[in-house]
Simulated scan of single mutants.
Amino acid sequence: MSTLESPSEVYYRAYRDYWRKVNESDGFDLENISTPPYYMFKGLLPFDCVSCGYPYPVMVNLYAKVGLHRYNMLKGTNFQLDSLVKFNMLPNCVSSFYISLLAHDPALDPLEKTFQVRVDEQNANCLDFTCSIARLKDEVITKNPMIPHFHGAAVADGFFKGELPDWPSDDSLNDEKRFYLLKESEWQANDWISMYLELRDVLSQLEILEVAIETGIEEVEPPNERLEAKSANVYIKFKGMANVRYFRMIFEIGERVERKAVVRRVLDEDSGYMTLMGKFCGGQGTKKRPRSDS
């Protein structure tokens, strides 16, 4: 340290040096990078998934699968998660995750390949996040400066902008120009549908009862092509969730109660960003209690 440097200058120099080194791997490889020894400093927290325990194991596993889901949709592959290797995360309640994992595509090569997946949460306690990176480790690293927590999202067209839709009426669901009702064999074959539900409740054993997909495009032939749409509203009826916790909403309690959830997927093919948002339908709203003047 130079004798002419103030403590604040030393701190900011260490801060810049740390994030410069983190930026070299887009936040995925922190080995041999020292965190500045300042109690106020918030860098990435590294976790080894192979040799020791780590926090949020179910959620991180699901985020890794989301990244492979995004990669498969863009590349036409079928990579399946084998195991987590490590991940780094911001120490925030709304966090960003930088995940390294092993996966293989049975149709291409039984050998495992290393993937890197980045997920940025947008809101706490709800399904709202963007997967901005999902790639093979040896693919080109992005040239843009790294932002530790990304606040952007996939660019949606007019149909997928704005608030999430409510659950449609029975008559609307029967409109084959607007919706495609999946056969049971189809939602079982497309495991991303159950994954969307698990992202909302990682503990319950959920039973899917009905699935419909809306893409904003009428007269799709064959109708099941909507399953391959990059952007879609997915309507899922299910049971098995004993209690639903949702902001300012009250739901009936019980695992046998039929629940309804809407999940919006927007995959921007230009940027590669994929945003998932979701909500529960069918609850009763609660009003904020007025403040007492007494």
Score class of each variant (00 low, 15 high):
residue 157 D to F: 01
residue 38 Y to I: 06
residue 33 I to W: 07
residue 98 Y to V: 01
residue 18 Y to F: 09
residue 161 K to Y: 05
residue 166 D to G: 12
residue 292 S to M: 11
residue 7 P to M: 10
residue 264 R to N: 09
residue 21 K to D: 10
residue 235 Y to D: 00
residue 263 V to N: 01
residue 229 A to W: 10
residue 24 E to Y: 09
residue 47 F to T: 01
residue 159 F to P: 00
residue 118 R to G: 08
residue 256 R to N: 14
residue 47 F to I: 06
residue 201 D to M: 00
residue 190 N to V: 03
residue 201 D to L: 08
residue 55 P to A: 03
residue 286 T to E: 08
residue 281 C to H: 10
residue 22 V to D: 02
residue 198 E to I: 00
residue 168 P to E: 04
residue 204 S to C: 10
residue 132 S to M: 12
residue 93 C to F: 15
residue 66 V to L: 14
residue 225 E to K: 14
residue 122 Q to G: 13
residue 83 S to D: 12
residue 279 K to Y: 13
residue 93 C to M: 14
residue 239 K to Q: 11
residue 169 S to V: 06
residue 250 I to V: 15
residue 34 S to F: 06
residue 254 G to S: 03
residue 282 G to D: 14
residue 60 V to F: 06
residue 228 E to D: 14
residue 67 G to P: 02
residue 49 C to R: 04
residue 94 V to F: 05
residue 138 D to G: 02
residue 38 Y to C: 06
residue 113 K to V: 01
residue 237 K to P: 02
residue 208 I to A: 01
residue 267 L to D: 02
residue 11 Y to N: 02
residue 272 G to F: 09
residue 248 R to Q: 14
residue 4 L to R: 10
residue 118 R to E: 09
residue 283 G to K: 02
residue 173 L to P: 00
residue 126 C to D: 07
residue 259 R to P: 08
residue 26 D to A: 13
residue 8 S to C: 08
residue 41 F to W: 08
residue 263 V to A: 04
residue 36 P to L: 13
residue 220 V to A: 12
residue 201 D to Y: 10
residue 42 K to D: 07
residue 38 Y to F: 15
residue 153 A to L: 09
residue 67 G to N: 00
residue 135 R to I: 05
residue 158 G to A: 13
residue 56 Y to M: 11
residue 154 A to R: 13
residue 169 S to Q: 04
residue 231 S to E: 10
residue 72 N to V: 03
residue 288 K to D: 10
residue 5 E to Y: 11
residue 142 T to Y: 10
residue 98 Y to E: 06
residue 196 Y to C: 07
residue 143 K to D: 11
residue 61 N to W: 14
residue 56 Y to S: 04
residue 278 G to T: 03
residue 63 Y to L: 12
residue 79 F to E: 05
residue 145 P to Y: 02
residue 97 F to N: 00
residue 191 D to K: 07
residue 242 A to S: 11
residue 8 S to V: 14
residue 247 F to C: 06
residue 222 P to E: 12
residue 76 G to T: 04
residue 103 A to L: 07
residue 156 A to K: 06
residue 10 V to I: 15
residue 275 T to F: 06
residue 195 M to V: 04
residue 86 K to Y: 08
residue 54 Y to M: 00
residue 249 M to E: 15
residue 140 V to A: 15
residue 140 V to H: 12
residue 187 W to I: 08
residue 99 I to P: 01
residue 134 A to W: 04
residue 72 N to F: 09
residue 286 T to G: 03
residue 183 K to H: 14
residue 151 H to R: 13
residue 5 E to S: 14
residue 111 L to T: 13
residue 250 I to S: 09
residue 15 Y to W: 12
residue 293 D to C: 05
residue 62 L to T: 04
residue 177 K to Y: 03
residue 67 G to K: 01
residue 238 F to T: 05
residue 36 P to Q: 02
residue 48 D to K: 09
residue 51 S to C: 03
residue 138 D to T: 13
residue 243 N to S: 14
residue 222 P to Y: 05
residue 36 P to E: 04
residue 22 V to G: 01
residue 252 E to R: 11
residue 65 K to T: 11
residue 264 R to F: 07
residue 124 A to L: 11
residue 79 F to Q: 00
residue 218 E to Y: 11
residue 195 M to C: 08
residue 49 C to V: 01
residue 165 P to F: 09
residue 44 L to C: 03
residue 113 K to G: 03
residue 102 L to F: 06
residue 59 M to H: 11
residue 13 R to V: 08
residue 101 L to G: 07
